[in-house]
Design a protein around this nucleic acid. Structure first.
Length: 492
RNA sequence: GGCGGCAUAGCCAAGUGGUAAGGCAACGGCCUGCAAAGCCGCUAUUCUCCGGUUCAAAUCCGGAUGCCGCCUCCA
């Protein structure tokens, strides 16, 4: 089955055919680095991280570019507020961005250009537009003339005539059309500035992406992604600039992810309900955040609530519990590697093929996660029968092969989704640490209580044993009496 | 005013013409000293409502209601 992708431009799913066979040129709008990243950034970046992983897995040679907008009004304003040079502020948040992304197990793109590293290219692109008569200078600024680009509005479905000029933004009288947007902005005293044919200034937001994508990927891209809110005006303007300059189709597939709401409300400054990644990760395991975001189709809105994430975190525990079980059974977990796909057989192969079918249908990770849980249940069942010597396949070697295979399929699915990346012990240990720290509970105390309970059980004092168990439960600690001894876990 | 989206069980959520995935929660069973974990079973004759097309509709078309987003920096 071939990959189909929903294209915002045609508003329909289309078969994915790359410009150059076997190669994918993908550009995704990265953050403007003036503040910490919030859960909305996380969704966008995780969605495209999974798309990147999947395309690479599918055998494409993917060049993935994600930029940093490191010069912008917001950065300058914020820098002035706190009395910091704009460049230093940008650098600070770029470093913070990497901390968040590494924590979320996001792969580094092929290239991560910064706007300030492409000023020369940006100026050349603007010059080209001015030469073509599509852009015009006015008092140190340069504007793009939307009336002179025929396709303006084709991505967002807007017609210039239908839009309310000046409805929410003051009309600049120097503009020929109120919807003309700025390509180059004259600098005010004390602001970061670069020399240009129009005087000292800095680039407008939209032109940065057009210039950087062109420099690194060329005039035509396969995929351009970003949040839904970027469709207008940002991506509409990118199309206008790039296509006006090159005369070629800028992007084949426009991919946009939906928003994250918080308790049914949009994140906004006025509500003060921005959830920053670094704060969320204090409470939830990063893979739980990934699994939560990916359990909704990327184009639909997601409502973030503690209850919803906690439910998903429970599901992740379940999968790691299985991995722990497999590790015990096999001695070690299978290692994922591209060459091992061929070895998948039987049920493992079926699950894997169901997963890729889901992914081939416009990256339907929600459906794919359903397959993952099916595979988990199946493998648990198999281990149940393996552990009972009187039933199941008596051939131990055959059982081990099957367990290995099915576990490999699960890990491969996890690898595409960017989860199940840790040894189960580390996963549970990390959860334990987080909770113990939050509740200031001592692990030694827990061990002591478990030992005390063990003694009580040995002497058949079940009343006392149950009391200890209740006491641990009150501490959010759950215990399991396994054949090999009692283990404890933190409840999600 | 213009453009667009969504409505599926107690909750979350897939499913875009062939007879309702999955997760969480609840309940019954196996297992267990009792639990937990795991497994099995059970949980939507039905997909906001009203019409229409079709042998066949949650899926397509028309209408109604409700919720939401974009048009301003925004992932």
């Amino acid at each position: 089955m071939t990959l189909t992708i929903y294209n915002s431009l045609s508003r329909s799913k289309e078969p994915f055919e790359t410009i150059d066979p076997g190669k994918v040129k993908m550009y995704v709008c990265g953050p403007t680095v003036y503040d910490s990243c919030h859960i909305g950034h996380a969704r966008s970046i995780i969605v495209f991280d999974v798309i990147y992983r999947y395309l690479a897995f599918a055998g494409y040679d993917v060049t993935y570019v994600r930029n940093f907008t490191d010069i912008d009004d917001k950065i300058i304003n914020r820098a002035n507020e706190i009395g910091m040079p704009p460049a230093a502020l940008a650098e600070k948040y770029i470093q913070e961005f990497y901390v968040d992304m590494d924590a979320l197990n996001v792969l580094r793109p092929t290239e991560e250009p910064r706007a300030t590293g492409h000023i020369g290219n940006i100026i050349r692109l603007i010059e080209k537009l001015v030469e073509k008569g599509i852009a015009y200078a006015a008092g140190g600024d340069v504007f793009f003339s939307v009336d002179l680009f025929d396709g303006y509005g084709k991505l967002s479905g807007r017609k210039l005539d239908d839009m309310e000029a000046g409805a929410r933004v003051e009309i600049d009288t120097r503009k020929k059309n109120p919807f003309d947007f700025v390509l180059w902005k004259a600098s005010k005293p004390g602001e970061p500035e670069w020399d240009s044919p129009w005087g000292k200034g800095r680039p407008g937001w939209h032109i940065e992406c057009s210039a950087m994508s062109k420099d690194i990927l060329g005039e035509s891209l396969d995929i351009h992604g970003g949040g839904k809110d970027l469709i207008f005006p940002h991506h509409e303007n990118e199309i206008a600039q790039s296509e006006a300059a090159s005369g070629k189709t800028f992007v084949k597939y426009w991919v946009h992810n939906g928003f994250v709401n918080i308790n049914h409300e949009k994140m906004s400054k006025s509500l003060g309900n921005f959830l920053m990644i670094k704060d969320i990760l204090k409470t939830y395991h990063p893979e739980a955040v990934r699994l939560f975001l990916l359990s909704h189709h990327y184009r639909t809105p997601v409502d973030f609530s503690d209850e919803a994430v906690r439910n998903v975190a429970g599901g992740l525990d379940k999968i790691y519990t299985l991995l722990e079980r497999v590790e015990k059974f096999l001695g070690q977990l299978p290692v994922t590697g591209a060459d091992q796909y061929a070895s998948l057989s039987g049920a493992a192969k079926d699950f894997w093929s169901q997963f890729t079918s889901a992914m081939n249908d416009d990256f339907n990770t929600a459906q794919g996660i359903g397959v993952l849980y099916d595979a988990v249940r199946n493998l648990n069942k198999l281990l149940d029968s393996c552990e009972k010597s009187d039933s199941g396949n008596p051939d131990d070697a055959e059982n081990r092969r099957t367990v290995f295979n099915e576990c490999l399929a699960i890990l491969k699915i996890g690898n595409i989704l960017g989860i199940l990346s840790q040894p189960p012990n580390d996963y549970f240990a990390r959860k334990k640490e987080a909770v113990l720290e939050r509740q200031s509970v001592d692990a030694g105390l827990i061990e002591a209580l478990i030992q005390e309970r063990k003694d009580a059980r040995k002497s058949k004092d079940f009343k006392k044993a149950d009391e200890i168990r209740d006491r641990l439960k009150a501490m959010n600690i759950e215990i399991e009496d396994r054949p090999e001894g009692t283990v404890w876990k933190v409840m999600s």
